[in-house]
Each structure stands twice: as C-alpha cells, then as structure tokens.
C-alpha cells in the first residue's frame, strides 16, 4: 500500500513540468526514504534525478519498495487538473497496475480522483559517483534561465568557463558571437540574489544549449540554481526543492575530437 500526501501539491505540479520535456517514460521509485526518479533522455546525453524525501510529506506510507512506470506527459496532464493550492495524494495498492492522484482543495470542499494505468519500463539505473567539483556556481535561477535562452538565439553550444574573474558563458553562430560574464556578488540584500563562485581551479567545458534550456524548466522550483563543473565529468545543474529534496540534471560535455 502506498499513500503519499503532499500538502504543497504545487511542488509536484512544478516537478512534472520540469522533467516531462526531457524524459518521456520513467519509473518513480518509492521507498521508506522517499519518492525518487532517475532517467536519461532518449539520446543518453542528459539525465534527471529527482528526490522528494519522506519527511517532506504530511503523510508518507510506503509498505514496501515500489517502482511505478509512468508516461510523464500523461502524469503532467493529470496534475494540471490540480489547483496550485491543492493537497495532492499519490495512492497505489500493492499489486495494482494503476496509480491514483487525489486532489483536495484547501477547504476540502472539492475532492478529485485521477486514476492512471502504470507501464512496465525497464529502467537502467546509472551509478552516479559523488565527486569533488573544480568549480561550483550558485546564482539566481532566473538569471541562469535568461542566459541560456539569450545565448541559444545566437548559437547552439555554450562554453562555460570559471576563472577567478567569474563565470563566463560564450557562444558563437552564423550571426555572430556572445559572451556573458557573471561576477561573484555577495553584497545583495537577499541571499537568493547572490552569485557565489567556489573555484578549486579554473575550468572550461562545452555543452549543448538545448539541454540546458530544458533543464531551466525547473526554474519555478527554486530561486537559486547551482552549476557544478569538473573537466572530466558531466555538469550538474541542481534546483533544490525547499525542505524536501532536489531536481538534479546531468549533462555530458561536448569534447574536441
């Protein structure tokens, strides 16, 4: 028996909007520790890892580990029927081949049940080693989204370079080139507006902008984003979900052959 009750249902709505463009079908894994997902895009170049810890749910009952295969576009269609202030409960009976999303309005005067058939998805879990990164940039998530969007109108790849000057995003295309430098800036009145750069050593990597743009669909989840870079690893773009967990995206670099 699975019954997960999330008072801030809007988080789940935003999570689906954040991942459904990158991944079509995926397994949601439920265990005592939480509700998670790990899935690659069809080209196996990008991966999304979601974790919603059990403590973040008002009620979290998961009698035994469960993996539920779902089409994320269909889940998104159902969750769009939930109000942004609704309480969302995910329910599934042991051995049943369906999952139910229940939406309760804040004053309990409207209760909706959406039931969906589960799919069999053979998920290939990748082992993601914890790594020391040569540079970690924390910046406003809206700022990062704006940079990715603007640069993708000029070119389709971005070179992200971190030096002691700051973090530089560069691209080039038929019409010309663009360089955006963001300097460390801690003297802001709100911490979420700060740009903080932790650099062990300078690093510079090249990435496809279309994946970074799909990652920025997670912007509504968090005021800040962290970008972790290391010269021999995929970039990690992480949006923390307040008090619950995170949506993490990994993207393999493009390498000079």
């Amino acid at each position: 028996m699975l019954e997960l009750r999330l008072v801030q249902g809007s988080l789940l709505k935003k999570v689906l909007e954040a991942i459904k463009e990158l991944v079509t079908d995926a397994n949601f894994d439920c265990s005592a520790t939480g509700f998670s997902l790990q899935a690659m895009d069809s080209s196996h170049v990008a991966l999304v890892a979601l974790l919603l810890r059990s403590e973040g749910f008002e009620h979290y009952r998961c009698d035994r580990n469960l993996s539920m295969g779902m089409n994320l576009g269909n889940v998104s269609k159902m969750l769009r029927c939930a109000g942004s202030d609704d309480i969302i409960t995910i329910k599934a009976d042991d051995g049943s081949d369906t999952v139910t999303f229940m939406f309760e309005s804040p004053n309990q005067d409207k209760i909706a049940d959406f039931e969906m058939k589960l799919m069999d998805i053979d998920s290939e879990h990748l082992g993601i080693p914890d790594a020391e990164y040569q540079a970690i940039v924390r910046m406003p998530s809206g700022e990062f989204a704006r940079i990715c969007k603007d640069l993708s109108s000029i070119g389709d790849t971005v070179i992200i370079s971190v030096t002691k000057e700051g973090v530089k995003f560069s691209t080039a295309g038929d019409i010309g080139t663009a360089n955006i430098v963001c300097r460390q800036n801690k003297t802001v009145d709100k911490p979420e507006e700060a740009t903080v750069i932790e650099m062990q050593e300078p690093v510079s990597l090249t990435f496809a902008l279309r994946y970074l743009n799909s990652f920025t669909k997670a912007t509504p989840l968090s005021e800040t984003v962290s970008i972790s870079l290391s010269s021999d690893l995929p970039v990690v773009v992480e949006y923390k979900i307040a008090d619950m967990g995170y949506v993490r995206y990994y993207l393999a670099p493009k390498i000079e052959e």
């Binding site: 690659m40 080209s43 196996h44 170049v45 990008a46 991966l47 290939e124 879990h125 990748l126 082992g127 993601i128 080693p129 790849t157 090249t206 496809a208 021999d232 690893l233 995929p234 990994y250 393999a252 670099p253 493009k254 390498i255 000079e256 052959e257």
Partner: peptide, 14 residues
C-alpha cells in the same frame, strides 16, 4: 569539431 559525449562514458550501469 566538438563531439557530444554520452553519459555512459562517465556513469556506469548499476
């Protein structure tokens, strides 16, 4: 030219 790498170059199946 820059060649897009695959994640399996860096992460291995569990």
């Amino acid at each position: 030219a820059c060649k897009q790498q695959k994640l399996s170059t860096y992460f291995h199946h569990q």
